[in-house]
């Protein structure tokens, strides 16, 4: 029944969306058939969070029975796809010759053209687990840290200033001044040192790599009298 005179247009459209009962494990997790194990884990974490019973996105659409059914499907999909053997068996089972309906379906996008992955990457959330695990290895620029570089490191790790403020109990305004290098509005050096140490630790940077370079900037700026006075309009 494909292609009976309906113009699909020249822009690529996604495949037909299916109701949950008709979805296979890949569709339940919203991933392509070539998804690697990392992608599967990320998708699982996101989907599980989305359909948790407190999920902000679900409560006004689904009742608890619905979300619980979806969670079961998500768990089942992850159980099967996260294990290489069960996944292979599943793939073989569903790999019957494609019917005419799916004949026009494009091959699944590669990980980096997947919009969800792209947004995660930009948000610094590509490694979802790294939010709770600041130790994870994120490639860092070399050289001393200034405010802008701290900000970039923070954004790459998906932290908002308010989150760091919550964790460190340092006011977000101070944290922002650290990034903006508004040294005149920051307290004495000893405090700034403490702030920067806490900031770095929170986002998963080793303080030793950050503090000395940053403090050198603070001290240099403060050694010049004119920078003591900063007029705020």
């Amino acid at each position: 029944m494909n292609g009976d005179g309906v113009d699909i247009g020249d822009r690529p459209l996604t495949q037909d969306l299916k109701a949950l009962p008709d979805q296979d494990h890949y569709e339940v997790l919203e991933i392509g058939r070539n998804a690697d194990s990392e992608e599967i884990e990320r998708a699982y974490a996101l989907t599980r969070a989305a359909y948790s019973s407190e999920g902000l996105a679900v409560y006004s659409v689904y009742d608890e029975q619905d979300t619980s059914a979806i969670r079961d499907r998500v768990e089942e999909a992850f159980r099967v796809l996260s294990n290489a053997d069960t996944r292979r068996a599943y793939d073989e089972k569903v790999a019957e010759p494609e019917g005419p309906i799916s004949a026009g379906v494009q091959t699944p996008p590669s990980p980096l053209t997947n919009p969800r992955e792209e947004t995660l990457l930009e948000a610094g959330l590509l490694d979802v687990e790294s939010i709770g695990n600041p130790e994870s290895d994120i490639e860092e620029e070399s050289g001393d840290f200034d405010g802008a570089k701290l900000r970039r490191a923070r954004l790459r790790r998906g932290f908002e200033l308010e989150q760091i403020a919550d964790i460190t109990k340092i006011g977000a305004a101070h944290l922002r001044r650290i990034e903006d290098e508004e040294f005149a509005d920051l307290p004495a050096n000893v405090y700034v040192r403490g702030f920067v140490t806490a900031y770095a630790t929170t986002i998963g940077l080793e303080p030793e790599r950050v503090v000395a370079g940053y403090m050198a900037r603070v001290e240099a700026a403060r050694a010049q009298p004119r920078s003591r006075f900063r007029y705020r309009s």
Binding site: T47, I131, G158
Partner: peptide, 21 residues
């Protein structure tokens, strides 16, 4: 404000797929 808020976008988009199609 939080990483959870960032993920809300994915959750809404997932609900739209699964519920509204």
């Amino acid at each position: 404000r939080t990483a959870e808020d960032v993920k809300l976008g994915f959750a809404i988009s997932s609900v739209c797929r699964k519920y509204f199609g």
